[in-house]
Design a binder for these strands. Sequence first.
DNA 1: ACAAAAGTGTTCAAAATACACCCATGC
DNA 2: GCATGGGTGTATTTTGAACACTTTTGT
Lengths: 229, 229
Amino acid sequence: MVELQNFYSSCFTVDNIIFGFENGDIKVLLIKRGEEPYMSQWALPGYFVNENESLRGAARRVLKQLTSIENVFLEQIGAFGEIDRHPSGRVVTVAYYSLIKIADYQVTASSIARKASWFKLDEIENLAFDHRKILDKALNQLRWSVRINPVGFELLPPKFTLTDIQKLYETILDIKLDKRNFRKKILSTGLLESLGESQIGVAHRPALLYRFNEEAYNELSDKDFLLAI
Amino acid sequence: MVELQNFYSSCFTVDNIIFGFENGDIKVLLIKRGEEPYMSQWALPGYFVNENESLRGAARRVLKQLTSIENVFLEQIGAFGEIDRHPSGRVVTVAYYSLIKIADYQVTASSIARKASWFKLDEIENLAFDHRKILDKALNQLRWSVRINPVGFELLPPKFTLTDIQKLYETILDIKLDKRNFRKKILSTGLLESLGESQIGVAHRPALLYRFNEEAYNELSDKDFLLAI
DNA sequence: ACAAAAGTGTTCAAAATACACCCATGC
DNA sequence: GCATGGGTGTATTTTGAACACTTTTGT
């Protein structure tokens, strides 16, 4: 039998791409690194994988440490393993992306970060390591994912308007959609449920509020669903 | 700075899912393991990643050692890192799938395998490690991929008939397609080029032969293409 | 002559698109 | 009363789906 120890010359990390949506913009949660290498640079939140946890488990742990978030949408992007991606040795990272409702959580700095904050996509540059490449892949996957699964709802607050969700799709896919056609299509999926309530305190006709109907989604998700937008 | 060595208690491998297409069936190349653990069981071809090679590089190397195949379509499936997936220690694997033209290559056993051969999907059971799970994910990704990119062409010989490619799609997606509608659709992509030649020696009207037009593909692949089949 | 797969168009239904005005509220 | 975004229907175009017979070859 091969001695595994002979191959113990490398290690793993996980990195999280945490997407949020606020004021019509996609945002990404970044940390300011508190340790070398890339000290004080902005980076994706991530850390080493412990021996006694799975990759996904590690991603959840890092996410929880940073945001206290649990039970959230989390999907793997893939592994990144260029030889020289980490200046101090061979480190392979596995990236996960998650979608969260910004308003629900208070982001806290932690042992792994000096500071954490949300960035709009166009404010981001010069990330540590190969994190820019990882972020780009995550964005691309999000754009596909949003058509195949109604993952977009994960980014919205529990009660939202049809305009909110239209803006979300427009932002993620970077396209402009026709209001009437979009409403027809999104309502025809049966995934939205009107709450019978309206917005209050807005300086225009108040919009009806909807919520995501999870039961309808569970029935649908087996058949391969494709939201043609 | 964190001492990376403290985290050197695990190692990683690559595993390849090598798809081929023959006689109207999708086939997968498996090896009979020549070493412990899972000695003599069928498994996906894979091996440890060396310190001085990237993940993709390792996948290419393993593929070449086993089949002498080079310069082939190769795409990452993802990382698999359950704690106990390897009985002797912590081993995370990164899986890649490749598509090859079976007729082009002679599969040879090698140091890492006692035997290698092609299996139809319904002949496969009881793979080593979590390889069944990895294979299922690869299949699922192939089914999506084939709609988004015209990757199916990678599985066909350089000259093929329209019926060949229809059979390919029918097999991968496990559906039945209408001949006339399929031809209209596949020709309208502009990705096929008639060679003006016909089959010879077949006991029926000989079919026209086509080839894949790579230039047309390169122009198309920027815009996001979706073959709605 | 017969078996076997190739090749070919039209009709109908469904889905996507384009498009403009009135409504309810806060200030 | 005016500015702001909410809400609604129809006509047209495009796309997808269903469907059957003739052609060419080998035996």
